[in-house]
């Protein structure tokens, strides 16, 4: 089976000021896969993720060369607005807006004018159901979102991203602040979303990468050391540095 490439990076090189954060990355991301990215701190994982929907440009010192092709189109030809609608991101710590559960989710559709055609309430319900949060919050949609537990907040963030109908979801260490049970729920949600979305998971937790992903890449100092089927990467890594990292000899 030849899988469809959703995102392709060509010689992607990212820097903040004079510091290179990501060097010459050539990587294909396939439709409906969960791609894992592991690596120690400062290995360029987050930079890579945020390059995909141009969030890196929020820092004034950022610059980038090379190309990112999304659904056959260079992202330079796509507006921020559309690109970020199509490629959503979940941040490391659950980041909710200081408004109700309902309005957190309705915000995205509102700014894209989706609520004019469809009923906001319907979008909110659909998104929460997809993120497996609906049953836990359906009776208290007016509750301020930050009253939810950390795990619920993170799934709320997933629902918020789903509400603008993306094709790709990026996760930037989504479970770093969560307890094991909440982590399991987020991971379950990711598995369920696999059939409709392409997902990229950056994680510090190698066990999580082994549990959740099909393919996994190892980043070190801004370079992609190797990328393999997850099972191969964790059992028979080609590069010694990967082996050292996975077995906990550094990092």
């Amino acid at each position: 089976m030849v899988a469809e490439v959703v995102i392709k990076t060509v010689d992607l090189h990212c820097s903040f000021g004079s510091t290179a954060a990501m060097r010459d990355l050539n990587l294909d991301i396939y439709k409906n896969e969960i791609l894992g990215i592991i690596g120690p701190a400062n290995s360029g994982k987050t930079t890579f993720l945020r390059a995909l929907n141009r969030l890196n440009y929020l820092s004034a010192s950022y610059s980038q060369t090379g190309d990112i092709i999304f659904e056959g189109k260079n992202i330079k030809q796509i507006t921020d607005r559309l690109l970020r609608k199509k490629i959503g991101i979940i941040f490391a710590l659950p980041q909710v807006l200081p408004v109700s559960i309902f309005h957190n989710i309705a915000y995205g559709p509102k700014v894209h004018g989706l609520t004019k055609k469809n009923n906001a309430a319907a979008i909110v319900e659909k998104s929460l159901k997809k993120a497996y949060l609906w049953d836990e919050v359906k009776d208290r949609l007016d509750l301020p979102a930050n009253r939810l537990s950390g795990g619920q907040q993170q799934r709320l963030c997933i629902a918020r991203t789903l509400a603008v109908e993306p094709d790709v979801i990026l996760y930037d260490e989504p479970c770093s602040g969560l307890d094991p049970i909440s982590t399991a729920k987020v991971e379950d949600t990711m598995q369920e979303l696999k059939k409709d979305y392409t997902q990229i998971l950056v994680t510090n937790n190698t066990k999580q990468a082994a549990r959740v992903t099909q393919r996994c890449g190892f980043f070190l100092m801004g370079e992609l050391v190797e990328i393999e089927e997850t099972e191969t990467l964790f059992t028979k890594p080609k590069d010694k540095r990967t082996d050292d990292y996975i077995t906990g000899r550094f990092g």
Partner: peptide, 13 residues
């Protein structure tokens, strides 16, 4: 800053 980041990441202008 996170409020701005959330909003921009959802594609808001």
């Amino acid at each position: 800053f996170s409020f701005r980041e959330i909003s921009l990441s959802l594609g808001a202008s």
